[in-house]
Design a protein around this nucleic acid. Structure first.
Lengths: 246, 246
DNA sequence: AAGTGGTCTAGACCACGAC
DNA sequence: TCGTGGTCTAGACCACTTC
């Protein structure tokens, strides 16, 4: 305890646990505390900041969650050794992204077929062959220009209500986001040649494209597999890393 | 309180706050609690689980951090509405990645020049023209095959000790990771044609490539700008989303 | 006005693991 | 063994915002 501190610190500009977190984060980012450095124990910090152990613990736990600190019982708390970069990538809904950019969104449904999963479908969607699925292909346009080509498989066994939806009126991705939210997903990002997508995208066949492949799951069951192809010259993905979930 | 619960719940297979978190997460992922649904208040949950409010708060705060919940004073806690997908992308150190794959890593330093930043350098690295920099180009090889081409600008004003390092012995990226750890970074991922990278990568000029561009900062100062080009046919980036920072 | 979340306290017991 | 972090409690005051 330094001076006045009986109980409340409502949130005077910033909560104390946030200040402690920022302090420590600052020392790590600035290099004052290099990887492997042993951070003061919770007990020490509690004395330094004149607060309870819970408050210090909150700050340190968060930093450990975000990967900056490594905590071991008895041993103590240490600054982690980074082994590469990690970043949070946002993959917005395509119509959303286009409209946010102030452009006019439109889309064409190019193909739609309801069928039983072939071996190839089954491999992509991770379902048993024969499972009823919906296979869609569409093209997203921004201000009338081809923006992305999309091929999608939808597991009708998992999302039977999708069978009755008119996907020429609303893109399947947006519909799914509203009707089957909070799923788990695996993404893969690749570079490919336009090739078979050249025509719908109005590109030369060897134009480089960004391919984003996503398999969406819910409680272990496959919901959808989607492959989105973006012309390389007008699309990129941005990701940023901030050291503490800030 | 239901039955026995005087004080300690050490961690009987799982901490209580983790169980509460998993319960709620499960309800959201399963769709039982759809977006916009009002989650029971901390007080209610505290009664349901027979624990203190702090424990409930810990679980809910974490879920709010990870984006699944939206908390507002007085109003309550609600399931968030997702607007797209977000995923954590790992961008490992290239040598690390290759060796982890059980392949032999080697690299060639193709160019190295120390100079004052030109206008073009300055724009990429976000420094003032004239700042002393190191410009490097190298090629990463896996089992003797070209794996990636890398162009890097290094701000010698920010990392003066790099001037004395022999980057033909160790790749700059790995050196930086060890000597200037825990930086902030901005990434951009694009698809491009091999073009000027075709020769070092032993590719046809129109082969699609994945280009990862990264600017690394420390306390607002630019450290390095790197552009890595990976042949599209043998490289991809994987990212996964787990709904609760788990 | 009242109920919500945000923060904080001053204790406590326990498991782990470096010594 | 014993210091460390991991967890938990039963309170507390406050700010905010909806009612």
């Amino acid at each position: 305890m330094t001076s006045a501190a009986i109980q409340p610190q409502p949130e005077p500009a910033e909560a104390l646990h946030l200040r402690i977190r920022a302090d420590i984060e600052g020392r790590i980012i600035s290099g004052a505390w290099p990887p492997g450095y042993r951070v003061p124990s919770e007990h020490e910090l509690m004395l330094q900041y004149g607060c309870s152990r819970m408050t210090v613990n909150k700050a340190l736990s968060r930093l450990a969650d975000s990967g900056l600190l490594d905590r071991r019982r008895r041993a103590g708390t240490f600054v982690s050794r980074p082994r590469g970069h990690s970043a949070v990538l946002r993959l917005p809904d395509v119509p959303d992204e286009i409209e946010r950019g102030g452009r006019l969104y439109r889309f064409d449904l190019l193909r739609s077929s309801r069928r039983k999963a072939t071996r190839a479908d089954a491999r992509l969607l991770l379902v048993d062959p024969g499972t009823p699925i919906l296979a869609l292909a569409c093209r997203h346009l921004a201000d009338g220009e081809p923006f992305a080509f999309e091929e999608r498989l939808l597991n009708l066994a998992a999302v039977p209500e999708a069978a009755g939806v008119d996907f020429s009126r609303e893109p399947a991705g947006s519909w799914l986001l509203r009707h089957v939210p909070w799923t788990d997903a695996e993404h893969r990002i690749m570079a490919v040649s336009a090739a078979e997508y050249a025509e719908p995208l109005a590109l030369p066949p060897d134009a480089p494209c960004l391919l984003v492949e996503r398999r969406t799951l819910r409680e272990g069951a496959s919901i959808t597999h989607v492959r989105q192809v973006f012309p390389g010259h007008l699309h990129h993905l941005d990701a940023s890393f901030r050291p503490a979930g800030a």
